[in-house]
Simulated assay, not measured.
Amino acid sequence: MGLFSKKQPQLSVAYTARGAGGGLDQLVTMTNPTDDDLVPTLRFRPLTAYGQEIPGVTVTSVQGLDRGMLKVPARSTARDLLRFDGPGCRQVCHVQTEVLDLFTVEPVSGLTIPPTVVMVDLDKLAVADPENFWGIGVANDNEEPMRVRVSVVELEPPHTDRKLRKASRQPVDWGTLEGDVLLEPKSHDVVWLPDEMRGRYHAVLGGVTALDLG
């Protein structure tokens, strides 16, 4: 679904209703092909399979693309996860995206590669099972330092109702780390979860924070 903006018509947002191969449902990916680092504030309108807007359904993003919380560096991308609430929320098949606000950040950061963020176990190996999720591995493959906004996501249980077998799996709760993860060029780190957060979350997301405007 295209991104509608008089300021930057070349920007785009792709929406994935159902993730392939165990990937997250209701994921949006914003692509910035310009030579400027941008901080957008977006509005997502929920649409049916026929392109009709669904009244009464509200849309919230986990990482904050709808609140100006992420920076999308030049020649790079940013990802976010959507939650739909209200009558008809299970009917959402697509989203239309509108730019409410957009500003340029200078100087350009040079962060053309998005951060890598994965769930890890005690041996710092990538895992998918919440029971083995002990920490968050964060990596920066760029030649410049990076400040990463990291969120953990709890998903609703897999659908057992036959009427919902094709429905997306919604995020039911999430949290963002109190402090951003600061990474030097070509480096990585692990943030260990406190005991009260273990066994609960199913996924992690990371993006370049907009709070680091330099």
Rank of each mutant, 00 (worst) to 15 (best):
R67C: 03
V99K: 02
L122D: 14
L11K: 02
L100A: 06
R67P: 06
D189W: 12
R162M: 12
A167M: 05
V39A: 00
T58I: 12
N132D: 13
G21D: 13
T60D: 13
A126D: 11
V148Y: 01
S12R: 10
E143Q: 14
T112G: 08
M197I: 08
K7R: 12
Q170E: 13
L183K: 00
D189E: 14
V153M: 06
P87W: 07
P87K: 10
V118L: 14
V120R: 02
G135M: 14
P171D: 05
A49R: 14
A14P: 00
E156R: 08
T97P: 01
A17H: 15
V204I: 03
M30Q: 05
L155Q: 04
L213K: 11
V62K: 00
P107Q: 04
L100Q: 11
A49T: 09
G2W: 07
P145C: 08
P46F: 08
L205I: 09
T160D: 13
V150E: 01
T116G: 10
P87E: 12
F103V: 06
M146H: 03
H202Q: 10
V105R: 05
A78N: 03
V118P: 03
D195L: 15
D25T: 02
V208Y: 05
A126Y: 07
R165I: 12
A139M: 10
R200A: 09
R43M: 14
M146F: 00
